[in-house]
Design a protein around this nucleic acid. Structure first.
Lengths: 182, 182
DNA sequence: TTCGATTGAGACATTCCCGTCTCATACGAT
DNA sequence: ATCGTATGAGACGGGAATGTCTCAATCGAA
């Protein structure tokens, strides 16, 4: 048996993305389990929401590691990060839209940890002279999050092909943030 | 008396953006009116949500008109549109995150009307040879929505100055989508 | 001032969701 | 085959939100 905890959380995220007010019963049915079982693993809605946030942070940090954003050419690092993020863009898109998840104790710290790492990447790109100076690292980070989330939604409803999504994001983002020799 | 209907909707949006599960009573108090009065004007939560969607569509179409996106240089048209959208970026950011608002009968049509106009703008830019061909008009539209919403959030929490937000968005978006002579 | 309309406060029953519980069933390991 | 464990189905009470109602107070126009 041993319930696939992450899978349940993903189903919950997919449902909550569409209907933020969905009941625990609906979430359970969407995940293909009974309400009792859902409640055994996540004692209450708060616990479920918190688990969603924690899974999201873990996912993102894992992708940051996989992309090795601290190493090498900043442009290539951004490309690797976007590439790595694409497989979970749907889940990231959900997290991005849930402002509710940001002011939970313990969750906030996780996201600011992520923000620091991402901000450092863009700052490094500026210091190395490849990223524009007139767009702040914080804004570049937010823009990247926004575009990744947008691509996740586009893939979900078929506007953008999954294979193309990474290119769409990085072409637009890097195109706009690179310093031009001219 | 004559209650300021739009003002109530804005307060409701501001609250629901932070707490999607806020009760009607909380919404009423946030808007500075009694629950009874709120219920007289919006008979039920569904009616309130629908009114939020309708106000959003009206706002956006008003801005599309004000920006005259069908006229003149596509680049300037995009800049005008972003400029016009900024004063309501906070409200737009809320609407953008509420996927719930998209599958209501009557609301969907409004947004596809908006999408058609925005898509036509980007297609025109491509046909006139100023926008890149390898990024689809649909994606460019989604990216613009995402960046405007992101800038709205950034302004709300002080990451980006309100005066700078329009420039941040258009520099990044246009920088990424313009064809390069090279 | 007077009258109609609108609002605020609160009571009320209803509905819905939640958290907990029990019990029977099905699975897996030993 | 047996036993421990996890699950599903459902019942149950408690609590919160909803929708509706009444009544007094307030505002604005005539």
């Amino acid at each position: 048996m041993s319930l696939d905890r992450d899978q349940v959380l993903r189903e919950a995220a997919a449902l909550l993305a569409r209907r933020p007010t969905a009941s625990m019963d609906e979430i359970a049915r969407a995940a293909g389990i009974s309400r009792a079982t859902l409640h055994r693993h996540f004692p209450g809605r708060d616990a479920l929401v918190r688990a969603l946030g924690e899974l999201g942070i873990a996912q993102v940090e894992e992708r940051l590691d996989a992309a090795r954003i601290e190493e090498g050419d900043p442009v290539a690092a951004v490309q690797r990060l976007i590439e790595e993020a694409m497989p979970v863009s749907g889940f990231l898109a959900f997290l991005y839209g849930e402002n509710q998840l940001y002011d939970l104790p313990g969750i906030t710290e996780g996201w600011s940890r992520v923000d620091r790492r991402v901000g450092a990447l863009f700052r490094r790109g500026q210091e190395e002279g490849v990223f524009r100076f007139d767009l702040t690292p914080a804004w570049l980070g937010e823009a990247m999050y926004a575009l990744i989330a947008a691509s996740g939604w586009c893939v979900q409803d078929g506007t953008v092909a999954r294979n193309d999504s990474a290119r769409m994001v990085s072409e637009l983002l890097l195109g706009g943030m690179l310093r031009r020799p001219s």
